[in-house]
Design a protein around this nucleic acid. Sequence first.
DNA 1: TATTGTTATACTCTATAACTATA
DNA 2: TATAGTTATAGAGTATAACAATA
Lengths: 155, 155
Amino acid sequence: MTDAAAPLSAHAAFLVGQLGFHTAYRFADLLAPLDIKPRHFGMLKLLGQHDGRTQQELGEALDIHRNVMVTLVDDLEARGLVERRRHPTDRRAHAVYLLPAAHALLARAEAVVESLDTELLAPLAAEERATFLDLLQRTAAGNGLRPGIHPGLTR
Amino acid sequence: MTDAAAPLSAHAAFLVGQLGFHTAYRFADLLAPLDIKPRHFGMLKLLGQHDGRTQQELGEALDIHRNVMVTLVDDLEARGLVERRRHPTDRRAHAVYLLPAAHALLARAEAVVESLDTELLAPLAAEERATFLDLLQRTAAGNGLRPGIHPGLTR
DNA sequence: TATTGTTATACTCTATAACTATA
DNA sequence: TATAGTTATAGAGTATAACAATA
C-alpha cells in the first residue's frame, strides 16, 4: 500500500533544485540592500563586459524576451545606472551604455557573489570545493546549459 | 573601465542556481503528461508515506502556507486523487487521504524522478555521480536545507 | 483568545499579441 | 515584408488580511 521509493534527498535532481532555489533566493536577499534584483545584476554584468549593445542583443545574450528588456532598461535608467543612446547605424534601435554609478554598484554586486560562493561552499573542504565546481561545470555543460544564462530568475 | 571579474560560470553559486532552475523546469515538463505539477507530486509523495494528516500539518511539512494548501487539495480532490474526511478529534480540521488512483500516479511520478536523475547525471562517470551526490547532500545540509523541503517550486 | 480552513485582494512575473517607426 | 522598441492584456504564483466555525 505504501509507495516505498527513495527519499527525495537521495536524488541529485532534487538536491540540485533545492540548492538552486535556496541560492537564488539568498542571492536576491543579499542584493536587496543594493536595490537591484538578480536580473539587473546579470544585465549590468553583461554591459560591464561590452557596452553599447542594443536591447535585442542584450536580450538574446541573457535569454530575456525583448518585451521584458524594456522594463529592465527602464528600471536601470530610472536609477541612473544606464543610458539609452541613439544607435549609430540603426535608428530603430537603442544602444545601452553604463553610467559611472553602475561601475561602483557592479563592484559591490560582484563582492556579493563572492560572499555567497563562500557561504555556499563553507561545508566543504578546500579540495572538495574544486571537485564540486568541476562536477557542476561538467554537469551544466552536459545538460546543454549555456555559460552565463540563468533561467527564470524571479524575485 | 571594464570590471574584470570572474565569469559567472566560475562560481558554484551561479552554477547551482542555473542547474537548479533547469532541473526544476525539466521536472515540471516531464510531469506535465501526468497532469500534475511538482508541488502536487511533493504532496502526494508525502501522503504516500503517511495518510490522514491535516492540511495544516501537510503545509508545515512542505513549507507551504495554509492558504495555498486549500487550492492544492482542491486540485487533487478534483482529479480524484485525494479525499477530505472529517478529522476524528478536531472538527475544524480536515484529514486528507489518498485515493486508489493516486498510488498508480505516484508510481509513475517516481519513475519520472528516476529518469530525470539519470538524465542529469549522464555527463558524469559512475564514481563521479556518487561523489557529486555526497557533495550535494553535505552542501545542502550545511546550508540549513531540510530534507524534502523544496523552496518555491513554480510552474 | 487561538487555530483550521476558507475567501478576497493586491502585487509580481510571464507570455502573447499588437502597435509605431524604421529597415 | 521584417525588425527594434513599446504598450496592453491575461494568466500564473505569492503574500497578506480577514472571516466563520471550532477549540
